[in-house]
Amino acid sequence: MTGKNAQNCNNNYLKYVRALDPPTKHFKNCLAAFGVGGLICTIGQFLRYMLEYAGLSGDELAGTVSVILIFFGCLLTGFGVYDRIGRHAGAGSIVPITGFANSVTSPAIEFRTEGYIYGTAAKMFNVAGAIIVYGVFSGVIVGIIYYFL
Protein backbone atom coordinates (compact mmCIF):
# COMPACT_ATOMS: atom_id res chain seq x y z
CA MET A 1 0.00 0.00 0.00
CA THR A 2 1.40 3.32 -0.94
CA GLY A 3 0.35 6.91 -1.23
CA LYS A 4 -3.32 7.55 -0.89
CA ASN A 5 -4.20 3.96 -0.03
CA ALA A 6 -1.79 4.04 2.86
CA GLN A 7 -3.81 6.84 4.32
CA ASN A 8 -6.55 4.40 5.17
CA CYS A 9 -4.18 1.89 6.76
CA ASN A 10 -2.38 4.45 8.82
CA ASN A 11 -5.31 6.20 10.33
CA ASN A 12 -3.88 5.36 13.72
CA TYR A 13 -0.63 7.10 12.90
CA LEU A 14 -2.41 10.13 11.50
CA LYS A 15 -4.57 10.31 14.59
CA TYR A 16 -1.46 10.14 16.75
CA VAL A 17 0.23 12.90 14.70
CA ARG A 18 -2.83 15.08 15.03
CA ALA A 19 -2.83 14.57 18.78
CA LEU A 20 0.75 15.86 18.90
CA ASP A 21 -0.07 19.04 16.99
CA PRO A 22 1.07 22.04 18.97
CA PRO A 23 -1.96 23.92 20.29
CA THR A 24 -3.12 26.94 18.31
CA LYS A 25 -3.37 30.06 20.41
CA HIS A 26 -6.97 30.82 19.52
CA PHE A 27 -7.51 33.72 21.85
CA LYS A 28 -4.24 35.49 21.13
CA ASN A 29 -4.65 35.05 17.35
CA CYS A 30 -8.21 36.32 17.37
CA LEU A 31 -7.33 39.30 19.52
CA ALA A 32 -4.50 40.30 17.18
CA ALA A 33 -6.75 39.83 14.14
CA PHE A 34 -9.48 41.90 15.76
CA GLY A 35 -7.15 44.73 16.70
CA VAL A 36 -5.26 45.01 13.43
CA GLY A 37 -8.30 44.41 11.21
CA GLY A 38 -10.33 46.90 13.20
CA LEU A 39 -7.54 49.45 13.06
CA ILE A 40 -7.24 49.23 9.27
CA CYS A 41 -11.02 49.68 8.97
CA THR A 42 -10.89 52.67 11.30
CA ILE A 43 -8.19 54.23 9.14
CA GLY A 44 -10.51 53.59 6.18
CA GLN A 45 -13.30 55.36 8.03
CA PHE A 46 -10.99 58.26 8.82
CA LEU A 47 -10.09 58.57 5.12
CA ARG A 48 -13.79 58.47 4.30
CA TYR A 49 -14.48 61.42 6.56
CA MET A 50 -11.49 63.37 5.26
CA LEU A 51 -12.46 62.83 1.62
CA GLU A 52 -16.09 63.56 2.34
CA TYR A 53 -14.88 66.83 3.82
CA ALA A 54 -12.89 67.40 0.61
CA GLY A 55 -16.12 67.10 -1.36
CA LEU A 56 -16.14 63.53 -2.65
CA SER A 57 -19.20 61.35 -2.46
CA GLY A 58 -20.78 58.09 -3.59
CA ASP A 59 -18.73 55.68 -5.72
CA GLU A 60 -15.92 58.20 -6.11
CA LEU A 61 -15.52 58.38 -2.35
CA ALA A 62 -15.59 54.61 -1.82
CA GLY A 63 -13.19 54.08 -4.72
CA THR A 64 -10.68 56.68 -3.55
CA VAL A 65 -10.63 55.21 -0.04
CA SER A 66 -9.75 51.77 -1.38
CA VAL A 67 -7.15 53.21 -3.76
CA ILE A 68 -5.38 54.97 -0.87
CA LEU A 69 -5.50 51.88 1.32
CA ILE A 70 -4.20 49.73 -1.55
CA PHE A 71 -1.37 52.20 -2.06
CA PHE A 72 -0.29 51.87 1.56
CA GLY A 73 -0.66 48.09 1.37
CA CYS A 74 1.66 48.03 -1.64
CA LEU A 75 4.12 50.45 -0.08
CA LEU A 76 4.41 48.53 3.19
CA THR A 77 4.86 45.33 1.20
CA GLY A 78 7.66 46.97 -0.74
CA PHE A 79 9.39 48.02 2.45
CA GLY A 80 9.06 44.46 3.73
CA VAL A 81 6.92 45.51 6.66
CA TYR A 82 3.59 43.99 5.70
CA ASP A 83 4.72 40.38 6.08
CA ARG A 84 5.94 41.20 9.58
CA ILE A 85 2.55 42.61 10.49
CA GLY A 86 0.93 39.60 8.86
CA ARG A 87 2.94 37.11 10.88
CA HIS A 88 1.37 38.41 14.08
CA ALA A 89 -1.98 39.71 12.90
CA GLY A 90 -2.95 36.74 10.70
CA ALA A 91 -6.39 37.34 9.22
CA GLY A 92 -6.32 40.88 10.59
CA SER A 93 -3.97 41.87 7.78
CA ILE A 94 -5.12 39.32 5.18
CA VAL A 95 -8.81 40.15 4.99
CA PRO A 96 -8.74 43.97 4.61
CA ILE A 97 -8.20 45.33 1.10
CA THR A 98 -4.55 45.97 2.02
CA GLY A 99 -4.13 42.20 2.17
CA PHE A 100 -5.33 42.00 -1.41
CA ALA A 101 -2.74 44.63 -2.32
CA ASN A 102 -0.10 42.62 -0.49
CA SER A 103 -1.00 39.49 -2.42
CA VAL A 104 -0.50 41.36 -5.72
CA THR A 105 2.70 43.18 -4.81
CA SER A 106 4.56 40.34 -3.12
CA PRO A 107 4.80 38.04 -6.16
CA ALA A 108 5.44 41.08 -8.39
CA ILE A 109 8.54 41.93 -6.36
CA GLU A 110 9.59 38.34 -5.78
CA PHE A 111 9.50 37.19 -9.39
CA ARG A 112 11.08 40.25 -10.95
CA THR A 113 14.29 38.25 -11.28
CA GLU A 114 12.53 36.18 -13.94
CA GLY A 115 11.93 39.19 -16.14
CA TYR A 116 9.33 41.90 -16.42
CA ILE A 117 6.92 40.03 -18.69
CA TYR A 118 6.89 36.45 -17.40
CA GLY A 119 8.16 37.36 -13.97
CA THR A 120 6.61 40.51 -12.56
CA ALA A 121 3.59 40.84 -14.81
CA ALA A 122 2.54 37.21 -15.19
CA LYS A 123 3.16 36.15 -11.59
CA MET A 124 1.49 39.27 -10.19
CA PHE A 125 -1.84 37.47 -10.28
CA ASN A 126 -0.59 34.33 -8.56
CA VAL A 127 -3.01 34.82 -5.68
CA ALA A 128 -5.03 37.85 -6.77
CA GLY A 129 -5.95 36.21 -10.08
CA ALA A 130 -8.24 33.84 -8.21
CA ILE A 131 -9.99 36.74 -6.52
CA ILE A 132 -10.52 38.57 -9.79
CA VAL A 133 -11.66 35.44 -11.64
CA TYR A 134 -14.22 34.43 -9.02
CA GLY A 135 -15.19 38.02 -8.38
CA VAL A 136 -15.94 38.78 -12.02
CA PHE A 137 -17.63 35.43 -12.57
CA SER A 138 -19.91 35.72 -9.54
CA GLY A 139 -20.54 39.40 -10.35
CA VAL A 140 -21.71 38.48 -13.85
CA ILE A 141 -23.99 35.78 -12.46
CA VAL A 142 -25.49 38.24 -9.97
CA GLY A 143 -25.95 40.79 -12.78
CA ILE A 144 -27.70 38.28 -15.04
CA ILE A 145 -29.97 37.05 -12.24
CA TYR A 146 -30.96 40.60 -11.35
CA TYR A 147 -31.53 41.42 -15.03
CA PHE A 148 -34.02 38.61 -15.45
CA LEU A 149 -35.72 39.12 -12.10
Binding site: R84, I85, R87, E110
Partner: peptide, 17 residues
Protein backbone atom coordinates in the same frame (compact mmCIF):
# COMPACT_ATOMS: atom_id res chain seq x y z
CA UNK B 1 10.38 29.54 0.42
CA UNK B 2 9.66 30.90 -3.01
CA UNK B 3 9.63 27.50 -4.66
CA UNK B 4 7.69 25.53 -2.07
CA UNK B 5 5.57 28.14 -0.33
CA UNK B 6 4.75 31.78 -0.96
CA UNK B 7 6.54 34.95 -1.98
CA UNK B 8 8.65 36.28 0.88
CA UNK B 9 6.67 39.46 1.29
CA UNK B 10 3.26 37.80 1.46
CA UNK B 11 1.77 38.45 4.87
CA UNK B 12 0.72 34.98 5.89
CA UNK B 13 0.99 33.23 9.22
CA UNK B 14 3.25 30.24 9.70
CA UNK B 15 1.49 27.31 11.32
CA UNK B 16 3.10 26.08 14.55
CA UNK B 17 4.16 22.78 12.94
Amino acid sequence: ERQYRYPLELGCTRPPQ
